[in-house]
Design a protein around this nucleic acid. Structure first.
Lengths: 311, 311
DNA sequence: CTTGAAACG
DNA sequence: CGTTGCAAG
């Protein structure tokens, strides 16, 4: 069932420009900061459209440096959210350097880490689970992709959960060619899994799919994350039978982003990108309850996203 | 005239170990932290031994990164101290990257900078003056030494002022050979100047001369800053007719240091080194008033030192 | 332990 | 702008 309304008008929350002082003469023509068009994530829907209550909650967060994120109290937010599975991207931390705050976390007895083998402090993903998966694998089964700690797959009784940190195409698109190879191989990997069981893919897919998925679509057509090639890669994934859960539920929702560059105060102006996704196999769509963007949670240049579903 | 007393006993200031809570049973044999033996710089002597009032105040400070030091309010301390000349070492900052807080400082209309030509953010010295020097030169006149921004010489009517950041011999003494060359060439440079006018040398000489000049003399005989070679280099400088002003005035004063490694809480335990000096030509000794170690000033792993003299 | 630059985002 | 490992001290 589609939710959502005519975007900006309905969901916009005006920034408060009134500081309580006497009014100052202003000319509307000058380059004043526009009141930012914010996005307020609606209340969680906790049952599927056929009325079954959600029994699986998954959170995904690109933490942009696990250690800094822990210092910024990211784990406090996680404890409040209390997901069944926590997926993290860009941990940038070798296993031996992990803070005890997270390695000792009793809420998640089952923890899985994958780091970059070559460069320390680069890339890296993690999956923390309340219940033990049937099995866990690392990488996508292709030597050339599996040295950067970009993918963990956990098998649960009724589905696979895949979390990934998709390679950034880089400034000047220096790594776009590699990215295209990754996109193709990764899609093949997912299709292989899907033949065995339905899957949930989550993580930082490093692409804003359509113009609605970023603020400045005009200016970014030649930039990493919004090139035609990357967008088509995502389209092909959907054409293979997977669904972008957030866009499915909120097809018209603009201004809903999960990433803002630290530069130029982008986050306060909500100049962002939707780069983080829950992508679902067709067989799991009936159990979909909600796909959330927790854009109040701080601690990284990405915010967390949460999936609620019945499995 | 020699000042100072029998060192530790007289000048020691006991650290306060009492935190106001109820006493806890302790066994004196266990490895408790010893109360640190601190050093309290005595009140400034503001006239020479023949009764003339000081008319020249020079401060030297290894700031260990000018930009960080400015953020830590090092300039506030400088304004209080109000020297006629401020010499800085380890500025680690290209001229174009200097904070305006210092480039715009009206107290010092005459500012001179020397940075490393090869490696940005390495070495670098500066001299800021209230009155304009007759001339200023950079380096010590030898190509092989003059690319790292280690020396500025200013000519004043009655003396040369030389500030330097002497090359560190490095971990494992990897650069001790180079240091020996520097020491020899630098001494020759100073002797050349001295033939023209008496001089004041100040800065981070990167050597603790005698055992009294560092806390852990036993453990550091093979470490940069206290090798026989470096100590002898300094001895040769003194034998060339120059005087270590602080040691001249306070020949027995132990625990007086100008550097403490950031590691292992060395500063709070006063486990330090005296690496920063004012070294004077014989012709200036009659005007010497005081040579101070401002060990309360924070903002670097070195503290500032100040010279008071009549010129 | 702390600085700064470099790579990356 | 902000994270990381790195070199240097």
């Amino acid at each position: 069932m589609k939710r959502g309304k005519k975007a900006e008008a309905a969901e916009a929350v005006e920034g408060d420009d009134d500081n309580g002082t006497a009014p100052v003469k202003k000319t509307k023509k000058s380059k004043e900061p526009e009141a930012p068009i914010l996005y307020e994530d609606p209340p969680d829907v906790t049952s599927s459209s056929d009325g079954r209550p959600a029994n699986m909650k998954i959170t995904s967060w690109n933490v942009d440096g696990l250690r800094a994120w822990v210092k910024k109290k990211g784990l406090d937010w996680v404890r409040d959210e209390s997901p069944d599975v926590l997926c993290l991207q860009e941990t940038k931390c070798a296993e031996r350097s992990l803070p005890v705050d997270i390695t000792s976390m009793p809420e998640f007895p089952h923890k899985f880490w994958s780091g970059s083998e070559e460069k320390e402090g680069y890339s890296g993903v993690a999956m923390l689970c309340k219940t033990e998966p049937l099995s866990v694998t690392y990488g996508i089964g292709k030597e050339e992709h599996d040295k950067e700690g970009r993918c963990i797959t956990a098998e649960f009784p009724s589905f696979f959960l895949v979390t990934t940190y998709v390679p950034n195409s880089g400034k000047g698109l220096v790594r776009l060619d590699y990215r295209k190879t990754w996109d193709e191989d990764f899609r093949a990997y997912l299709q292989g899994l899907e033949e065995r069981k339905p899957l949930v893919l989550c993580g930082d897919l490093n692409v804003a799919h359509e113009e609605i998925d970023l603020k400045n679509s005009k200016g970014n057509k030649k930039n990493a994350g919004f090139t035609t090639e990357e967008r088509e890669g995502f389209t092909q994934l959907l054409e293979a039978g997977f669904t972008d859960s957030f866009r499915h539920l909120y097809p018209e929702q603009a201004n809903a982003y999960s990433f803002w560059t630290y530069m130029m105060n982008s986050r306060s102006k909500n100049v962002g990108w939707r780069l983080d996704y829950f992508v679902l196999s067709a067989g799991l769509m009936a159990g979909l309850c909600d796909s959330k963007i927790r854009n109040q949670a701080m601690g990284s240049d990405h915010c967390p996203i949460t999936l609620l579903m019945v499995v």
